[in-house]
Design a protein around this nucleic acid. Sequence first.
DNA 1: TTATATGCAAACAGTTTGCATGGGT
DNA 2: ACCCATGCAAACTGTTTGCATATAA
Lengths: 162, 162
Amino acid sequence: MESRIERLCIDRGLKMTGQRRVIARVLSEADDHPDVEELYRRATALDSRISVATVYRTVRLLEEKGILERRDFGGGRARYEATEHGHHYHLIDIDTGRVIEFEDAEHEQLMRQIATRLGFDLVSHRMELFARRRPQGVGQSMGQGAGTAGTAVDERVAGKGR
Amino acid sequence: MESRIERLCIDRGLKMTGQRRVIARVLSEADDHPDVEELYRRATALDSRISVATVYRTVRLLEEKGILERRDFGGGRARYEATEHGHHYHLIDIDTGRVIEFEDAEHEQLMRQIATRLGFDLVSHRMELFARRRPQGVGQSMGQGAGTAGTAVDERVAGKGR
DNA sequence: TTATATGCAAACAGTTTGCATGGGT
DNA sequence: ACCCATGCAAACTGTTTGCATATAA
């Protein structure tokens, strides 16, 4: 089956090799922010004939084509997510590494104003919150908790503007 | 003469070696956001008996002591600035690499609210604007222009909140 | 068929580190 | 004198790249 990202690749005239198709699928199915190592892991699980070099090359290509966006959440490794969901920001749980996405309508506008005030045209911006899960009141535990710290099982959060 | 940062080192009981004194001085006199390579360059200009390794170690030590703050403006290299000036943000001129600092009172509060809404306590946050100098009206060129792109001759800008 | 994508391993850049030596306190 | 800081070079991590081979169009 043709994955969403494979479609985008085809639309932009990219040659669809076996490994690209696999990587495209992995990316299409990812709803988190995997780094190259993780993408490589997922891809080789589907087809072992893929090298890290190819993942790096593909990821770079897709970024240039505007299909992917590179993120830097600190920690030295670049992480990727598909370009699609409207502008959103990230909150990184410093204890678990989990990344939560959120939107905030006001921000982009505010940042644009600031740039303008300084005599610039805003090209892009980034904002990340590093935070710690607030200790819950009594007992009422939280669906997925402090358990599996480490691997970032990212989640997405709706909510719009404050 | 004892530099501002040397003072801080002494206050925290750090052993003041010759190279630390020099690096402390370089940092005290810097009003930009130098990376290790640049710090090393400035330091060895004052005293050649300093190795990059020492700069790396010192910079890490000072960061742990809360005297320095590490920044990541993209480009792979960490950049440093003394902890002191109140919370401020950075706008990076994508054409020249120059970094402009600015303040915005509203932001911290706003970010804190967002974290709270998501069930977190904000620990730290970062925000960077990548922008391009707005093309000036007619002819009137700009003091220091597109000329020497590359080296970041940072500047500081006052202004408070929008 | 022909240009382009891949694998492999070597090359790179930034940063860290082991070890013997030097220098503060 | 003692322990910590330093220099040097080797090690490491994430990422890129040269080259011969494989493959999509």
